[in-house]
Design a protein around this nucleic acid. Structure first.
Ligand SMILES: Nc1nc2c(ncn2[C@H]2C[C@H](O)[C@@H](COP(=O)(O)OP(=O)(O)OP(=O)(O)O)O2)c(=O)[nH]1
Ligand SMILES: [Mg+2]
Ligand SMILES: [Mg+2]
Ligand SMILES: [Zn+2]
Length: 573
DNA sequence: GCCGTTTTCGGCCCGACTGTTTTCAGTCG
């Protein structure tokens, strides 16, 4: 699959950036951005859809023109419009718009007035005091640009959800203690439980926003106050994380939660629905003319635009509004539905706790089972087990199980998928296990087709129950290895294999969209923590949240079954 | 550039903060 959706989307976003610098019609700019989002959200590759002759203009926000441009990109690898725009607009202007407070208009003005060629030119101009000479710019803007560029890195940094929690929980507790704050909640992508967050968005209810914000910016961890008004403020924490605080009267709480939870696309869709009903929706309420008809609760806001309340995890404008309208919202899986964990390590390989300790921790969580999945022999750096050691572990598990009531350890392993798709233990040994998790831990750069073939070949072995962390990505550290997810899912479906949703907040592999595609094709998902210590079992909630973002219900998830049912489900042909 | 059971043309979400502004455009959420 030569051109990926993410690349097509990036090209459309780039077109939008360049058009914006040229002061093109802003709705045309928005059309490219909307199309980019649509493409990014598709589980199927555009390239494959073009190949099949699908009508791309059926996709939301893709019309005949953009369908043609997608086809052009798929066929040629290029977009003529983008090539032309790139000749006319220096890339450095687009780069400059990444400086907070500098948008397309001001970036272009600076580059043209001062005849700049690069970001480094801009930095020098700021240092030499030439920016303040440009009409419409002053000392403050100049100082801000100088500071931002001196700090070096202007690329947007995103934080893992678990990292964000460490900052968010004490901060929202602080906000709740501020005089005059009636209540406060974290909204934004954090409330939607996105795998990474760009910032923290905190909503507070109170009458005197100015006073509340004065206290907010005094928070110990605040490094810089970016902006500060009567209803909203932005600060940067020492860790580099931005925090937006929004303060509204309690009567607007629901509308403001709706607004601040987003996503932006979900908000815009909701506001358009309001328009269609001759109403107006903003963060203060839903209005019929001057009259507020709702706003205190989210339920009231949704009701006013003819919808049931929608779970925050679904608010991405990926069909949830249409589903809500038809009363077809999914019955999302809940943490309580989880009956056990199917991926965990012990001191036998690279874990930090014993079989018994892991078992006790699992029982404490109310589980009926825990699969012990230590590494296989090729994983020498991760303490991979020899065949003998695994045999011994199987016996040890059997012995321990005799002492448990209403709980059992499952004898398993996380067996390496070797380069040719063979497994790292002999079939005879694998046959003794309750289930087998097979994972790729080496040769990430085989190329998409070979990598996909490799994993499918592993699934050809009927011993394989689950494919572990199917893309190998590490959030913020390592990209997924190239793999054809649609083909992988189809193959898993044909073979009765389960795909793992690795719940470690460092992985969350599969993604929300991939989970959704899998269950749409009838493939079950195992939400597994890959715990390397007893504490790791608690990562389950991240996996459940990710599953919810993928529209999964309990029925779609293998480890919502009791072991007796799960055992039957895992049995292959 | 997209879209439409009241439209195939004329709309396109709506509001806060900033800086340099003499009345608001730009940027951002
Ligand atoms: N109506 C409307 N709401 C917006 C717009 N931009 C942002 N919002 C709302 C929805 C967002 O979820 C919320 C917080 O904005 P953020 O920029 O922090 O986005 P979000 O938290 O969704 O993602 P993030 O992980 O921070 O990048 O504000 C907009 O242009 N219009
Ligand atoms: Mg945010
Ligand atoms: Mg924000
Ligand atoms: Zn692994």
């Amino acid at each position: 699959m030569p051109v990926h959706n993410s690349e097509i989307a990036a090209m459309f976003d780039h077109v939008a950036d360049l058009l914006e610098v040229q002061s093109a019609n802003r709705f045309r700019v928005r059309a490219y951005r909307n199309a980019a989002n649509t493409i990014r959200d598709q589980s199927r590759p555009m390239a494959r859809m073009v190949e099949e002759g699908a009508d791309l203009s059926q996709l939301p926000d893709i019309g005949d023109d953009l369908a043609g441009k997608i086809t052009e990109i798929v066929r040629t690898g290029h977009l003529e419009l983008l090539d032309e725009l790139s000749e006319d607009v220096p890339e450095a202007i687009v780069e400059a718009t990444r400086i907070p407070g500098v948008g397309p208009k001001r970036a272009r003005a600076l580059f043209e007035e001062l005849d700049l060629k690069s970001l480094d030119d801009l930095r020098q101009a700021a240092e030499q005091g030439r920016i303040a000479d440009v009409k419409g710019f002053g000392e403050r803007t100049q100082a801000k640009i100088r500071e931002e560029l001196a700090e070096g890195d202007i690329t947007e940094r995103r934080f893992r959800l678990d990292t964000a929690e460490d900052f968010a929980e004490p901060l929202v507790a602080y906000v709740r203690r501020i005089d005059g704050v009636q209540k406060a909640e974290i909204a934004g992508s954090y409330r939607r439980r996105k795998e990474t967050v760009g910032d923290l968005d905190i909503l507070a209810a109170g009458e005197d926003g100015g006073a509340i914000i004065d206290r907010f910016v005094e928070y110990d961890e605040v490094d810089k106050v970016v902006s500060k008004g009567k209803t909203r403020s932005t600060v940067t924490l020492r860790a580099g994380l931005n925090v937006d605080l929004r303060v509204v009267p309690e009567a607007s709480w629901g509308a403001a939660m709706h607004y601040f939870t987003g996503s932006k696309a979900h908000n815009v869709a909701g506001r358009r629905r309001a328009q269609d009903r001759s109403l107006k929706l903003n963060e203060y309420g839903l209005y019929d003319g001057e009259t507020r008809i709702s706003g205190a609760t989210e339920e009231g806001v949704y009701e006013g635009i003819g919808l049931p309340w929608i779970e925050p995890v679904l608010r991405e404008n990926r069909g949830e509004i249409e589903a809500a309208e038809k009363g077809e919202l999914p019955d999302l899986i809940k943490p309580d539905d989880i009956r056990g964990d199917l991926h965990a390590h012990t001191t036998a390989s690279d874990g930090r706790n014993s079989l018994l300790e892991m078992a006790e921790a699992a029982m404490e969580r109310g589980y009926g089972y825990l699969a012990i999945t230590d590494h296989s022999r090729s994983q020498t750096q991760a303490g991979g087990l020899s065949a003998d050691k695994l045999e011994a572990q199987i016996d040890e598990i059997a012995e321990l199980n005799e002492g448990f009531e209403g709980f059992r350890l499952l004898a398993s392993c996380e067996v390496d998928i070797l380069e040719n798709g063979d497994l790292d233990f002999p079939d005879k040994l694998l046959a003794r296990l309750d289930l087998v998790v097979a994972s790729v831990h080496s040769k990430f750069n085989l190329g998409e087709e070979a990598q996909t073939d490799r994993i499918i070949r592993a699934m050809d072995n009927p011993a394989v129950s689950i494919i572990g962390h199917p893309t190998g990505r590490l959030l913020g550290q390592r990209r997924a290895y190239p793999v054809d997810m649609e083909r992988l899912i189809e193959a898993a479906g044909e073979r009765g294999c389960v795909l793992e949703l690795n719940a470690n907040p460092n992985r969350l592999d599969l993604s929300d969209i991939q989970c959704r595609m899998a269950v749409e094709r009838g493939v079950k998902i195992a939400i597994s923590t890959d715990a390397h210590a007893t504490g790791g079992l608690a990562h389950m909630r991240y996996g459940v949240d990710q599953a919810r973002r993928g529209w999964l219900s309990a029925d779609d998830v293998a480890n919502t079954l009791d072991w007796s049912d799960l055992e039957k489900m895992l049995k292959r042909g």
